[in-house]
Design a protein around this nucleic acid. Structure first.
Length: 260
DNA sequence: AACGATATCAACCGCCACAAA
DNA sequence: GTTTGTGGCGGTTGATATCGT
């Protein structure tokens, strides 16, 4: 455990500040203190609780780990979908994004983005902030995730069937293909209107499944606003698919995202 | 089994905004 | 109007775990 000398004024006894991982006793101290006095005033928490930590450190530990409603474990496909969509709208506004994912912390979402999403950008040899990558996320990754969610919930049609397996409303207009989860060589077509039309809520694509309560409650409301609207922008999909992905080598790596 | 490479995640750092003095 | 303290945010780092050879 590292310690750091704390500069105090003449009335303060110089205190050594702890740094690094939190010990169980520290967690208990902090949790007890917050349960008694509530959140906020983190500098007071640090000083009055007996913890030799900074207020910032106490706040961070509470928000990211000790808070009762913090949600742990893998990011679900539904959450991934929401993160991708919200990031495409807001950029690196992690705390804002985290507010829309109950129990998830900005730190967790930021880590997810840096480790998983940016990894793919690197694999594709493009900048994560580039339009090319953003379009890939919006028009390939997000639909694939939606497809995965649909399939997992049992709402998807039989894989490999001749029928269109669509997570989008079948409308006339722009058309693009989503390769199936297994590399069977089939393409599942998706139709999108290139004209603005009556927007179906994103929840429409998931309600058939069953285990979608969370999505309907939280994510769908978000997605129905920006996601669907942008997809309906005239010509936007056409431009994306007009690019020569095959020649750029993208198509090869795009569908190797097994973790999707 | 050992070692290096890579992924993951908790925690820290610096900057900024805001409020109080 | 200026200074100072505090909290919040995003970027970065370092320790540990996991994977591949």
């Amino acid at each position: 455990m590292d310690f750091e000398a704390r500069a105090g004024n003449s009335s303060d006894v110089e205190v050594e500040l702890r740094k690094g991982p939190w010990a169980v006793e520290e967690d208990l101290l902090l949790a007890n203190y917050v349960s008694l006095h509530g959140e906020g005033r983190w500098d007071s928490v640090a000083k009055c609780s007996g913890l030799r930590r900074t207020g910032k450190s106490c706040r961070l530990r509470w928000l990211n780990y000790l808070r009762p409603d913090v949600r742990r474990g893998n990011i679900t496909p539904e959450e991934q979908l929401l993160i991708l969509e919200l990031h495409s709208r807001w950029g690196n506004r992690w705390s804002k994004i985290a507010q829309r994912l109950p129990g998830r912390t900005d730190n967790e979402i930021k880590n997810y983005w840096r480790t998983r999403v940016q990894k793919h950008a690197r694999q594709l040899r493009c900048d994560v902030d580039s339009k090319q990558f953003r379009d890939m996320v919006r028009y390939m990754w997000i639909p694939r995730l939606a497809e995965t969610i649909l399939a997992a919930s049992g709402g998807g049609r039989e894989a490999g069937s001749s029928a269109q397996q669509s997570v989008w409303p079948a409308e006339e207009g722009a058309r693009f293909a989503i390769p199936p989860p297994e590399t069977s060589g089939n393409s599942n077509t998706v139709n999108l209107s290139s004209e603005s039309s009556d927007a179906a809520s994103a929840s429409d694509y998931f309600v058939a499944g069953g285990d979608v309560a969370w999505f309907q409650d939280t994510a769908a409301a978000e997605l129905s606003e920006g996601w669907m609207e942008s997809l309906r922008s005239p010509g936007i999909c056409d431009n994306f698919w007009a690019q020569d992905w095959e020649q750029s080598g993208w198509d090869e790596s795009l569908w190797n995202m097994e973790e999707l």
